[in-house]
Nucleic acid binder design. Structure first.
Lengths: 215, 215
DNA sequence: TTGCAAAATGAACCGCGTGTCATTATTATA
DNA sequence: TATAATAATGACACGCGGTTCATTTTGCAA
């Protein structure tokens, strides 16, 4: 007794999930994590109240799924950026430039919701585990990138590459926080990123003078 | 027709407020901002449900009052620290050392609640104003401190002191965030603070070699 | 001791978000 | 066209935190 009627069940199911995650991204970007409700997401996705529970049980589940999706997309983008240049230092310059460009619209992305999600949830067992995983992955990837520069002879670091990665990561998160707090202008975020790049140049001991980032 | 009965109204009123704020500090340190409820605070303060509204209307009001109280206490402590030494650089060293010592217990203080309060509330008009005021004040004070070192001839900065203050502030907030995320060990927070001190030494162009912070 | 106003209480109400479930709509097959 | 399984709906009940307010308790003065 196979189904007597259903025409869609396989690809459509995935389609639905995508629909939910895309709606969720818009909602979380607009309202942040805590203030967003299942109702908001349901309405944004043009679904009905109960239907969404067939796919995701809680807001948290949706958020985590959305994060994974965005992480994958991000990984692709980073790899493309890496393909544009053979020099690790040049890649860092490009990355920082991109970071500066994104500052202005930071508050309209899901990034604030990310910070909110973890900062309000670090007492929660599940989230702490997730947070630790994400931290380790990002530090591992950044360390690997820096180390590849060392191996290629581009850098002569004065500090372990893992430490340098940690410093860069915390500085960037701090700058982001201050941008959210008072805006990119008042926090002088662009200047801070330029300073960070110069600082990284020192810590890494870049062999050749950094190409000026004028463009 | 003066009161026919009240024996306490003036100092006791202030006493009550203190009682509430101290209870609130314990609650916010234990649970963070959002998860804490008026009920928690009322119970911690050994008051009854409705009574607290005679003093504070909302949780937010209590939190802000508590912040102001802690800020005042903090200002006193910083001034004391400044009195211990005539050198601005030495003061920075002491401050960083103190910061390192506080890392271990960071998650048991109200500091996480501070971050939470602002990170979840930066879309709110009132909080944004408060946040901007606090940001400006802290940057102003730190800039003034650094500038006093310049004026005394201790420093020959390569960057505006205001910029250096902003960099230090965002780096410290970033380190704090990562400590809350994965702990002081995994984020190598102590090493990061040492590196920040050295970085500040470079940016400020300290005239004499920094005294090693061994003690 | 009595009266009265202020202090203090906590039951009850309100608004809101969540999650369920009885009901309705859709669609492919017989 | 009939029918049955599945897709989809949205009204409703529940829990929770915030807030109010009628009531009780307290303590001083008359």
């Amino acid at each position: 007794m196979k189904s007597v009627s259903p025409k869609v069940s396989d690809e459509h199911k995935e389609q639905r999930r995508l629909q939910i995650l895309e709606a969720a991204e818009r909602v979380f970007a607009r309202k942040g994590y805590e203030p967003a409700t299942m109702k908001d997401i349901v309405e944004e996705a043009a679904m009905s109240r109960g239907w969404i529970y067939l796919y995701y049980q809680t807001k948290e589940e949706i958020f985590v799924a959305m994060m994974e999706k965005l992480d994958q997309e991000n990984a692709v983008r980073i790899r493309q950026l890496g393909d544009q240049t053979g020099s690790v230092w040049k890649l860092l310059e490009l990355w920082m430039e991109e970071g500066k460009r994104e500052l202005a619209s930071l508050s309209e992305t899901v990034i604030p919701a990310f910070y909110e999600f973890f900062l309000t949830g670090w007492r929660n067992e599940r989230r702490q585990e997730l947070l630790r995983l994400r931290y380790r992955r990002s530090i591992r990837e950044l360390t690997a990138l820096l180390q590849s520069g060392v191996d290629k002879g581009e850098f002569r670091p004065t500090l372990e590459t893992g430490q340098i990665a940690r410093i860069a990561a915390s500085q960037i998160d701090g700058i982001h926080m201050h941008v959210l707090a008072v805006g990119a202008e008042e926090s002088a975020a662009a200047v801070q990123i330029d300073a960070l790049l110069a600082y990284l140049g020192t810590l890494l001991g870049v062999s050749r003078p950094a190409s000026s980032s004028s463009h």
